[in-house]
Amino acid sequence: MNIPLVTVLGRMTIAFLGLTGAVTTFATRSLLHCFEPPIYRRQIGRQMLEIGYYSLPVVGLTAIFTGMVLALQSYVGFSRFSAESAIPNVVVVSLTRELGPVLAGLMVAGRVGAAMAAELGTMRVTEQIDALTTLSTEPFKYLIAPRIVAAIVTMPMLVLVFDAIGILGGYLVGIYKLDFNEQSYLRNTIDFLEFMDVFSGLVKAAVFGFLIALMGCYHGYHSRGGAQGVGTATTNAVVSASILILTANYLITELFFAR
């Protein structure tokens, strides 16, 4: 069968617009349920633990190696024109503005977004979500709102941890490998750090947290067709969250720092 290219493009556009509309509706409904009682505090607590505490090892490891390699690589570059003293500043600004939120976001998307899609997807195909409704409990309030609230609140905390550990990684390489003076490394780190560097990173983190939970819940909630359907939902949740994180990252950066 030979379908004209225009037809294919047209169908893709329509499918894309339809999906955007569905996701927007889903997001609005989820957010409204975050503010409307009953609020399930225990569910929020459980999710915060799941998203925050259990992501610490992954985030910590990512952070320390990122900080270390950042120091090492900037040394290679900056020593070519004797600007080694800028290294602490480069490390801290890159971490707080970009690498902290983006890398933590991608790691958490892989860990938590996937888990959310798998859990909700399984609940969908085993009719547990329908069972909630028959027990007069709104699934958006009980399942989705707590995940979204927890992700928005927890991601900035995770990114703060990422920043701290990343700076430590850079510091260790700086001191023990590149023979920086301890005092001057620290002074260069702190003196040039601006409030906006950290703040913009935290705003990004909150937005990324929202996107991760939204994609995990959206794909899980709408999954169908048994184990394979849940698998597809999980993959889609991670891929779409990652793409949205990278896109949103550019847009937020533009918003904060473009002149």
């Binding site: 609940m123 085993t126 009719e127 547990q128 329908d130 069972a131 028959t134």
Partner: peptide, 11 residues
């Protein structure tokens, strides 16, 4: 009250 086909217990 509803008894679901697969039980649908919250695991």
């Amino acid at each position: 009250g509803m008894l679901f086909q697969g039980g649908a217990l919250f695991d």
